[in-house]
Design a protein around this nucleic acid. Structure first.
Lengths: 184, 184
DNA sequence: TTGTTACGCGAGTGATGACTCGCATACAAT
DNA sequence: ATTGTATGCGAGTCATCACTCGCGTAACAA
């Protein structure tokens, strides 16, 4: 039942947008009555949070997995594959990405998002710290912070805006930015 | 009168947040009656748009001016000064930046923001195109797009989050990223 | 002084939507 | 069969706004 409600919430968010995310609408989409929602969720915000949390966690998980898989490798190919995984993860649910990043007031999901960013950052920090030949920057933690935020925004904007560059070019440029930065 | 209303709107946004941005509240803050708002604005959204537009335009103007001032120079110092101007512009009204970027659904201001980014991007594109010795990237437009989005997000997150790096270090890293990227 | 106009006022209206509460139904236990 | 319990229902309540409308008033013209 919780599943049905969450699925319906996601549906409403994607199809009708954040403004239409009312308890009545979600209940109707789930095929249950408004009252029934409140046997499983204390309030509307909790439903929304769960939908968003799952999306963010799924996305972070995909990226984290790609990163972990490649963590023993090194060099441009590894960077490129990771960037590719990031873009692919965001592309896979473009509609929800748009709602989450452009319609939702993201103060609500900021804390969660920051946590997930930190997880990825920690992976990268460890990677960089272990490979001084690939990382000429003095502070691996700071470098990881820079990379995560820069790449994240590039990927999100590329997916959501009319991309001014083709996908392959984007990946090339991302690799150049990461490599150029780390080796400078 | 329009000024008073816009100022009050900004005030409410900063002090009480986006959720409290009601016509009644804005009117009270402006010391006028709710009805009077509607002699100067057709609806609430227009008031909000004006407040946000001004903020975005002011900020873009500061950055654009710093960039134009330095446009004849080159090298790391120029990049650093521009990055400094960007960070300073965002720092100068941190409370409003927080509301605009974390509480407002930014679909509304997305178009405007994209326009302003494009202006800055065009300046940078011209700059890069004219200086092949500083720019080894094949597509100056794409390179400018990358730089604007990467630097913007870094600066915003640095100003809004608990900065994991001190300000001077941030600027150093930004310079390294820009230079490393362009010369790779 | 008087007439006119336009500005500002603020109580009121209508719509919306989160949430509740008393009822019905299905099923379990006796 | 009968009673007890839990689950779902959905009309209703209550609060919140965005926006309106008819009035008072103040400034200015005649």
């Amino acid at each position: 039942m919780v599943e049905r409600i969450v699925a319906a919430g996601r549906q409403v968010l994607v199809d009708d947008g954040y403004d239409a995310f009312s308890t009545n609408r979600v209940a109707a989409a789930a095929g249950v009555s408004p009252g029934s929602l409140y046997q499983y969720f204390p309030d509307k915000a909790t439903i929304l949070d769960l939908v968003v949390d799952r999306y963010l966690a799924d996305t972070a998980e995909q990226v984290g997995a790609a990163l972990s898989d490649r963590i023993t490798e090194f060099g441009p190919a590894m960077v490129r594959d990771t960037a590719d995984a990031l873009v692919a993860a965001l592309e896979s649910d473009r509609a929800l990405l748009r709602v989450v990043s452009e319609e939702l007031p993201l103060a609500r999901s900021r804390r969660r998002l920051t946590d997930l960013e930190r997880q990825v950052r920690d992976l990268i920090t460890a990677y960089l710290a272990a490979r001084p030949e690939l990382n000429h920057r003095p502070d691996a933690g700071a470098a990881a912070w820079m990379l995560v935020l820069a790449m994240e925004n590039l990927a999100v904007r590329w997916v959501l805006d009319q991309p001014p560059v083709p996908r392959e070019r984007l990946l090339d440029e991302m690799v150049a930015m990461v490599a150029g930065y780390l080796l400078s």
